[in-house]
Design a protein around this nucleic acid. Structure first.
Lengths: 106, 106
DNA sequence: TATATACGCTACCATTCGGTTTCGCAATAG
DNA sequence: CTATTGCGAAACCGAATGGTAGCGTATATA
């Protein structure tokens, strides 16, 4: 079973859950009110988010508040940074090539 | 069929393909050499990436070079910015709360 | 012209996904 | 104590996923 943040944010419902929980910790029932799907479906998404450690449980009586773990989101930023580095490097190589051509034409 | 960038980057092979193509446009056969999977599997990933407009085809004789469309990647950045905004807002509200408490204690 | 290569497309397969329904358990309310 | 509420877990279903194998076509090469 693949289970990383990229798989966690692949589903639009889970992305919405992340944004909602980022604003404030919420219970599954509270979350389900924001979507036109069942509480169980939301619970399943929360389980996936928990397995990815994107979200943490905080029991309070018979309710469970789900809180965001912002650290996990950095893995996305990390991959994007990798991506941007490659692009930057490519462009700087292009610059080198261009200046080489300029030098030759002199 | 769901088809957006978040679904495109959900698969680790596709993430690797994106990074490889970001560095340099490549043909399916060339790409397949970097993985221990078949050319057909890579072609399928490329089709998904094409449908998401993350990647563009550039025919050259009987070869097809796949080039990256960097613009599409900004959608990820956009969602992350949304996420960061919510977190920032939450913290500034906390600041407001704290200063309110301070004022009351005065 | 005959052959080899690069590729997309379709058919097929096992697995996973997102969802619903049902159930059982613990905590609260009456 | 009994009824209700909040929740996770399991069984099940249709659809999508990632992969393979084989076919057809266009380009390049002998």
């Amino acid at each position: 079973m693949r289970r990383d943040i990229f798989q966690a944010i692949a589903d639009p419902t889970r992305r919405a859950i992340i944004l909602l929980i980022a604003a404030q910790g919420m219970t599954p029932n509270l979350l389900a009110e924001h979507f036109d799907t069942s509480r169980q479906a939301i619970s399943k998404h929360l389980r996936i988010l928990s397995e990815c450690d994107v979200v943490r449980q905080e029991p309070s009586g018979r309710e469970i508040y789900y809180q965001l773990n912002p650290v996990k989101m950095e893995e996305i930023e990390h991959w994007l940074a990798q991506f941007r580095n490659i692009l930057d490097q490519r462009f700087s190589n292009l610059d080198n090539l261009l200046s080489t051509i300029q030098n030759k034409s002199k």
